[in-house]
Design a protein around this nucleic acid. Structure first.
Lengths: 177, 177
DNA sequence: TGATGCATGTAATCCGTTACATGATTCA
DNA sequence: TGAATCATGTAACGGATTACATGCATCA
């Protein structure tokens, strides 16, 4: 799955500018399993347009670049359907946190604790973000993704809270902050 | 975190060849949150060696290239410690599966079901893999990572099993296989 | 006054994967 | 016989990020 398909997907829910697509990706309920930067979105949009999978409409604005509102075409929908019919690649999960924890025993307990706390904060922020998204009505698919995220993140939080207590309970903690 | 640090980390547990490092990464308990290919490992090792962070010892073999057994040096341990002291980047999670599920309502129920089943199979395979790793004794850090993975994967499986039943319970399923 | 949001785009750069090259041994 | 395992390495390619360039409006 690439940025092209991603743009097609977002646009299938309604027209939008590149800027709005980026916003949707990082602020919508899909932010926890998808990423994309302007540097990839804008070229993808131009490309898609050239292939007739999108149309544009320029909205004049004063004091800033004209908005380019993109909309998906019938050919675009077909391309999306085709991309969606491909068996999805396996999920990818990368965690520097867990990598760091691999060396727990060589790290100062205060460092371990700080890292766990940071991870907990990140997880809780994601959870809060999903909760915020839920304030509005979510379409079925987004709801599924939100629920999935919530289930997984909640489990991670519960696990870490337990581990945190264990680290705290270990002797030699006195140390620095 | 890059492949360099990863190699340093694996080597901190004992000497190994590039081939063995790769194996450790894809077969060890860390496989679910780390990835690296030969194309990145071998050059990293050469580079690290040039910087004095590793040493090599060649083991002669007949019928195949000599083994190059790498060991971490004191400078290497320091470099690792330095890399480990940097606040880890946020976890990254990418899911084509969830992306596909976003369009659930436009997909045939049989496709949705097939995808959920594939995802379930992947998750269960990861879980089984962790269980296998646990057959041996795991060092503290690896155990932490394995536990974390297990907690999260288990939650995902439970969630999907529930959703799967819901999809199945929906009317109009009769359709194709 | 200075950060943040709106709005688009390009270019340099990075980091890594995939494919290729080589080749013996062992297992099914 | 053909696939998998062991073992190292290079080169091409890709896909995306980061930084840069521009600039007004708004809010604190």
């Amino acid at each position: 799955m690439n940025v092209r398909t991603l743009c097609l997907g977002v646009l299938s829910f309604g027209e939008a500018t590149g800027y709005e697509i980026k916003k949707e990706i990082e602020e919508g309920p899909i932010s926890h399993f998808i990423e994309a930067s302007f540097g990839s979105i804008y070229p993808a949009l131009t490309q898609l347009l050239g292939e007739g999978l999108l149309t544009v409409r320029a909205e004049e604005q004063t004091g800033r670049p004209d908005k380019k509102v993109y909309a998906i075409t019938e050919a675009g929908r077909q391309a999306l359907a085709r991309a969606l019919s491909v068996v999805p690649a396996r999920d990818k999960y990368k965690s520097e946190f867990l990598f760091q924890m691999l060396f727990q025993q060589y790290l100062a307990p205060s460092v371990v604790l700080a890292s766990i706390d940071k991870q907990l904060a990140d997880l809780r922020a994601d959870l809060a973000h999903i909760a915020t998204c839920r304030l509005g009505e979510l379409p079925q698919g987004s709801c599924f993704a939100a629920d999935y995220g919530q289930a997984v993140l909640t489990a991670a939080v519960a696990f870490l809270e337990e581990k945190r207590a264990e680290v705290l309970a270990r002797p030699h903690i006195a140390a620095a902050e």
